[in-house]
Amino acid sequence: MDRYYAGVASCIEGLEQGGNRSLVYELIDRVLENTGIVPSDTFLITASTKAGIDRIVDSVKKPPSDYSDSFPQHIADYICDRFSLSGETLHISAACASSTVAIARGAALIKSGRYDSVLICCYDLVTEFVFSGFCSLQAMSPAACKPFDKNRKGMSIGEGAATLLLMNEKKARELGKKTMGIISGWAVTNDATHITRPDKDGCGLALAIEKSALMAGINTDSISAICAHGTGTLYNDSMELAAYKNVFGSRNIPVFSVKGAIGHTLGAAGGIEAAVSLKCLMHGVIPPTTGFTDPDPDAAGLVSSGPVKTDIRCILSTNSGFAGVNASVIMERG
C-alpha cells in the first residue's frame, strides 16, 4: 500500500520517505522554512500524537539505537538547533487535543511572566500504523469526510504541521511583529465518562468553553464564531453540537470544520485550526465546511457549505480526543 491509502487519507504531495530518519523531519522542515525569525530566548513547545512512529516501528526488524531521533524529545532538539533556541522545551501529548493544549501551555507560560515568547510546533504524519489503527476502530469514512452532515460516515485522516509564535505585547512591539490576534482564554477538561467515546451531552467540552470565556473575561455572547473539531464521526459531531447548544442556547453562531478539506491531522489539528481561526479574525471570513451538503438537523443554521463574510471580533477553537480530553482557546482581534 502506498502512502496515499486508496485516496481516503489526505497526504502531503511530494512528502516521501528518504534517508535514515523519520519522514516527520521533512514535514517539519517544510513548516520551519516559512516560520520566519524566532528570538533565541524563545521557549519551544511541540505537540504530536505519534511523533516519528514511522521509524520507531522499524526497530522490530532492525537495531533500535538508530531510531532514538524519532522520539519527540529529539525532534524538539532539532527544532531548537534550527532556530538556535536555548533548548528548554516541552513536548505535549493529549491525543487529538495535543496542540490546543500546547497553545494553552504556551499562553500560560507567557502569562506567568517566565517567558516573553513561546514557539508552538505541532505535527503528525499519516502512517500505516495510524491508518490501520483507525480502520480497526471502524472510524474511517469510505470517502472524504462530511463534518456535521446528516450522512457523515466517519473521519478522513490527514497529515500536517504548523508553527505559531506567541509573544507578549512588549516583545512583539520591540521586534515590530504584526499581531494576528490575542489568545485571551483557554481551558482543558476531561469528560470522565469513556475512553474512546465522547460524552453525548458534551458536558466536558461545554465546561472547557465556559472556563475559557471566564479566563478571557468575556461573556460567551461575545464569541462570534467557532472553529470546531468536526471530525465527521457520528459521535464526535453530535457531542460538539450538544455542547454548543448547552453553552450558546438557540443562538445561530457560525460553526465550521476544516477536516473535510485537509483531513484530521490528529496532534497537529489544533495548531492548524488556531492558525485558520486567526486568518478568520484578520479577514472577517468564515471558511466553508467542505463535505457539508445535507445538514444534520442540529447543525442547520450553524454550519455552511460556503464562505460567510461577517464581523469576527472573537473566535473559539476547540478539539477533543481519546481519553475524554477537551481543549479550547479563545482568540480575539489584536
Binding site: H91, H194, A323
Partner: peptide, 15 residues
Amino acid sequence: AMLFGLTGPNYILYE
C-alpha cells in the same frame, strides 16, 4: 478521570 471523576486538565509531557 473516568474511575475517579476527575474533570480537570490532563496531558502527557515527554522528557
